[in-house]
Structure formats: C-alpha cells, structure tokens
Write a protein that binds this DNA or RNA. Structure first.
Lengths: 310, 310
DNA sequence: CTGAAAGCGCTTACAG
DNA sequence: CTGAAAGCGCTTACAG
C-alpha cells in the first residue's frame, strides 16, 4: 500500500531519475564519444550509424563530434569528451602523431579505438580497411587496360589513408615500369574542391594523363564536375578510378571503377570490440585489425588494348 | 608560490575538471539533444551541422539520435534525453500527436523546438519550410508544360510534410480541373524503396501517368532507379519532379526540377533562437516560423505544348 | 578577501 | 531485510 501510494505520487510528479547524479556516483556515463574528421562524408556517417546500432544494444549512447580534419580541433574535442567523462572514445584521427592523446586516455583509463586511420607512434586498438593493395589493384587494372599516363589526386595530410594509397600507387607504377612525371602527382585535400581544381589542372596539361586515380570519394566528385564543365566525357576522353564509392552509385553515369569499402563493417566491429573491452576488468593488449577491400569494375575506364583484358 | 606548486602538481596529475559533477551542481549540462527521424537523410545531416555550428559557439554540445521514423522510438529517446538532463531538445517529429511530449518538457522546464515538421495539437516553438505552395507550384509547372496525367508518390505517416505536400497537390489538381484517378495517388514512406516499388507500379499501369511528383528526395532516387531499370528515359518517357533536392545534383542527369529546401537555414535559425531562449529567464510564448521555398527548374520535365511555357 | 561547509541527486556499503 | 548515512566532485553562499 505504501508502495502504491509512492507509485501514484511518482506518476503525478513525473519523477524521472537524474542520470547526471547517477553518472557521478557510479563514475560511469554510459556514453561513448565518437570523433570523425568529416561528418558529412557518407563513409563516416555509415560507420557511425552501424557503431551506434551495436553499442545502443549494450545500453550506451554516443556523442558525435567532427574535427573538420583539423588537428587542433581534434585535440580540443578529445579534451571535451574526457571532461564529459565518456566511457570510451572512437577516433578517426586527422593527425599523424597520436602518442600524447593515447597516453592521456590510458592514464584516465578511457579505452581509445582508432577507426579508418592508423598511427605509427602509439600502441592502440585499431580497425582500418586495407589501403595499399586496393590502390595497387586499381593502378594494375588501368595498366592492363593499356593506360600508361596515369595521374593521382591525393590528400596531403600525414594520415595513414593518404600515405598508404600513395604507396600502393607508387609500388604499382614501379612494378609496371611507368614513368610518372611529378606534375601527375597532385596533392590537396580529401574534398570536392581539390578534385575540381587539381583535376582541371591535370586535364589542361599539354600532355594530359589518360587516366586519373582519385584517392577519395569527394575528390572523385570534384573531378567529375570538372570533366563535365570542360565538355569532356568519361571514359572516352579520360578514364577515372576512385578509392571509395560515391553516394547513389546507381544513379551516376558512368559507373565508377572503384575500391569498395565497408564502413558498416568497420563500425559494427568497433562497437563489438569496445563493448567487450568495457565489460572486462583487465583489458587485453592493443589489437589491430585490417579489413580487406575489393575492386568493383564500372565503365569509367577506356580499354585501350582489348587483347590484354579478360 | 603555493599557486605555483599547485599548478605544477595539477600539470603532473593531468587534472581535468569533472564535467559531470559540475553539471550536477549547476543543474546545467550545456548539452542539447537533437532528435531526427532519419540521420542518413542529407537534409537532416545539413540541418544538424549548421545547428551545431551555431550552438557550439555558445558553448553547447549536442547529442544526436535518430527515431527511424518510429513514434515509440522517438518517445523513448526523448525520455533518454530528459534523463540525461539536456538543457533543450530539438525535434523533427515522426508523430502526429505531440501534446504529451510538449507538456513533459514544459513541466521540466526544458525548451522544445520543432524543426521541419509541425504539429497541430500543441503550442510549441516551430521552424518549418513552406510545403503547400511548393507542391502547388510543382504541379502548376507540370500543367503549364501540358501534363494532365500526373501521379504522386507520398509518405503516409500523419506528419505535416506528408499532409501539406498532399494538400498542395490536391489544390493544384482541383484548380486546374485535372481528374486524378485514385491509382495515381500512391502512399508509402519517405524512403528509396517506396519510390522504387510504387514507381514501378505507376509505370506499368495500362494508362500510365506522363509525370510523377515525388514528395521527398529518397522517393525520387527510388523512382529514378525504377525508371532506369525499365529502360525508360527522363523526360522522354516520363517526367519527374521532386520536393527536395538530391545529393550531388551536379552529377545526376537529367537535372531534376525540384522544390529547393534550405536545411542550413533552418538549423542556424533554430540554433540562434534556442540560444536566446536558454539565456532569458522568462521565455516568450511559442513562436512559429515558416521559411519560403522555391522551385529550381531542371530538365526532367517534357514540354508537351511549347506554346504555353516561357 | 579567503577558506570551510553545505548540497546537487543519486548509489552503495553498512548498521540495525 | 530495511533504512539511514556517507560520498561521488564540483559550485556557491556564507562565516570568519
């Protein structure tokens, strides 16, 4: 009867437990901070969505923030996360050096998990997708199709995705004995503007490349816009390949030959591993996972020597 | 000197204030909960981004959640927000009735602001974009181009965007004395699948429409895929117009004639108003803002009677 | 002006 | 098994 009266009063007053007080007392917020370099990139959107699906089942909420590819902003946002006492942090870093951040999280006993981009200067749990061989395979496909004048538009930040895709490109050009002039190697940012500007630069060269390798989906979008503006056609006038898929690939003609990534898988694996880590008292050593990528052929590459292909 | 010693100890220990304790004491979390029906829709993405830009300058963080257009999930997530003691809530509701939620927030003194979708059963701050006349203008344009067999693919949830776009469609068809058969009015959801399935249904009819009005960007994407699959062309075989723009409109051919929305503006206005509201001790009465929309002509509509147009 | 004390709303260990 | 008390880490009103 007392219980009943209490219950009715509770209902009347719309009582609701104070999560802040609970978090303070239990030293646990049930919140995970997720920090990506670019929230408008569908790659990170999908990664976040699948991550959230997994951890919400484990009763965790997420806070999402975007560093806009700026190292200082990233560092500041990590501080904000730590001050808000998140239980863990998932990070797609915009930085090349991460030892300090890793040490900070370690000190405060906050698990840190890198996604999409790894770092060399610290031991930390990492889930990335394969970059080197994906880039290599794209170039190999272009060579097999008869291309030798191949250009690349890449980012320039000291992050693993930029470095490894560049490495794959260089290994392939060496293995196939292509001599790539310096001006064919363009470096900007992982955004549409770089694809547009550097793309126009390439297309207007006296000795223009016959194929262009875009190291990121936004770069590819910018390049396609540039090609359209110049009244050129893909693949008749220039062939295009891309690391990472565009949104709505079924609507964009021609269909790009591209390395297909799987952000949904990265996100869900990160979620599962993090839930395990948060459950166990004594976490294991840093783990590093690299997921395989694969090429999907489209019709954005001109076949210059039919004999060689298929 | 004491200060100095304290400072050096602080640095050594990596002291960092506990935001949870501060929030408890000050009864303020400096966090705003943002709840949208579909986080993967670029419309809401952009709205959230611009909102975050504005409120982060006012020292607020945001928590984002997605209701997946499910009323129960929406209600549950609002409870989570309130339990987490957010200072305010921004909501694009998936529900037709909102009086209870409004009352709850009011009781707890948590400002609630609706965006994109209004409700009739409660007085609450609201920022939406114009729907009725935008839909009306699209149909008017089709009629001017000579179309009379016009179909519509809409959602079916009892939300303002569905209802008002339908109303604009019906007003126009009445004003222009079109007799629209029931089977031309297809209702599904605001997603790609509905556009695809209902689109195919329309396209395969004995007496198929010459023009289709998609009430949402995802519906338009699904319809375009269906049209491509059937080997038909836009606008030669069927004309298409859409409420809301597709992503990457510069890459998708033909360019859709569409009502252009401005989620960035909705988000930034919502941010500014909310900051004002959070600053003032005694908030004003509920305010309702409707932003104008406009049509952008593409080349997705076949001109059947050149005399009438332009 | 400085510093000790009270209290935010919970949870949990402990006394009865 | 029940219920009162202590304490999480801050902020703020208040005593000195």
């Amino acid at each position: 009867m007392v219980r009943k009266r209490v219950q009715s009063v509770v209902d009347q007053l719309n009582y609701q437990p104070n999560g802040i007080a609970r978090s303070l007392r239990r030293a646990k917020t049930n919140t995970i901070g997720v920090l990506v370099p670019d929230i408008s990139n569908p790659y990170f959107m999908e990664l976040i969505r699948s991550f959230e699906d997994v951890v919400s089942a484990g009763n965790y909420n997420i806070i999402v923030a975007s560093s806009s590819e700026r190292p200082e902003k990233e560092q500041r946002l990590i501080e904000v996360f730590l001050e808000k006492r998140v239980d863990a942090i998932v990070l797609a870093t915009s930085r090349g050096q991460l030892a300090d951040t890793v040490k900070n999280c370690w000190k405060r006993n906050v698990p840190l998990m890198l996604v999409d981009r790894s770092v060399a200067d610290a031991e930390v749990d990492t889930i990335v997708e394969e970059n080197v061989s994906g880039a290599y395979e794209l170039v190999k496909y272009l060579v097999t199709a008869g291309h030798r004048k191949i250009a690349i538009i890449n980012g320039s930040a000291p992050i693993s995705t930029v470095i490894e895709r560049q490495r794959g490109f260089e290994r392939a050009t060496q293995d196939y004995k292509l001599s790539i002039p310096d001006e064919y190697v363009q470096q900007g940012h992982f955004d549409q503007e770089s694809g547009y500007i550097l793309g126009k630069r390439l297309l207007k060269m006296k000795s223009a490349p016959t194929a262009i390798f875009c190291c990121n989906n936004f770069i590819a979008v910018g390049l396609i816009v540039a090609i359209n503006e110049l009244g050129l056609s893909i693949p008749e006038d220039v062939s295009v390949v891309s690391f990472g898929e565009l949104l709505l690939p079924e609507l964009i003609r021609p269909r790009l030959t591209a390395v297909i990534q799987d952000p949904v898988r990265v996100g869900s694996i990160a979620g599962r591993l993090l839930l395990e880590k948060l459950d166990s008292e004594f976490p294991a050593n840093a783990e590093s996972i690299t997921l395989a990528t694969h090429i999907r052929l489209g019709d954005s590459v001109k076949i210059l020597n039919p004999a060689n292909v298929g």
